[in-house]
Amino acid sequence: MVEAEALFPVVLDDVSVYRKQTRVLGPLNIRFEQTGCTVLMGPNGAGKTTFLRLLHGLVRPREGKVVWALPPEQTYARQSFVFQTPIVMRRTVQDNIAYPLIVRGAGKRQGRQQADEWIDRVGLAHVAHKDAGVISGGERQKLALARALITAPDVLFLDEPSTNLDGASTRDIEALIQAVVRDGTRVFLATHDLGQARRLADNILFIHHGAILEHAECDAFFDHPATPEARSFLRGDILL
C-alpha cells in the first residue's frame, strides 16, 4: 500500500490547454502539496472546471506537463471526481454507489454492503433501491459524492458540488467534505459560493480568463485580495 503523500507534490510546468486554436487555460506554473482543501474561485468561464479536469487527466495539455509523483495509471486510480452535473448510471442508487468497488474487483455483495454504509451517511436510505433516474437533483448530487468517496480516494475533485442542493443538504455535504479532509484526503473544489469557500478552504486559487491571478491562504484572500479582479469578484461586481 502506497501512502497518500506519495502522490504529491503535483507540479504544473508551463501548462496550457487549448480548445481548437483558443487557449482556455494557462500558462500555468504551480505546485500543490498534500495539504487540506484548495478552493478554485472565479467567474463563469474562468477555467475552474478545465483546471480540475486537467489535474485529473480528463483534459490533456497541449503545452507543458502535469507531473504527479506517481505514474499516471497509479495516480488516477487513487482519485475521484464529482462532476458539476451529476452523472447517474441506469441502475439503482445502491448499485450506482457500489459500482466503483465492483470495477475494482470487489464482489457484488461486498460492494452493496459498503454502498449501504455510504447510503446511510449521505441520507439516501429512503431511495436506496430506486432507479437513480427518478431521484431529485439534490439526491443525485449526494449519490455522486457517495460514489466518489466509497473508494476512499487520496484526492477528491469536486466541481460545484452543492449547486443543486438546499441549505440543509449543503450543510450535510460540507460536513462530509470536512470529514474526508480531516481523514487525509486532498480536496480540490470549484465553487462560486463565497460562504462555502470560507467554510471549507485552506487556500484559494482565484482564476480569471484561464490564468491564475491569486493563490493564497483562505483568510489572506478574503481579507486582503491582491488583484483588482479578486476585489471586484469578492464585492460581487460583474467581471468581464
Binding site: H56, L58, E73, A77, Q79, F81, M89, Y99, V103
Partner: peptide
C-alpha cells in the same frame, strides 16, 4: 447515447 452520458465518469474511474 449512453457513452455520451457516461464518458467522463467511466474514464474518471479508470475502467
Amino acid at each position: 447515447e449512453l457513452w455520451f452520458l457516461y464518458h467522463d465518469l467511466l474514464i474518471s474511474m479508470n475502467t
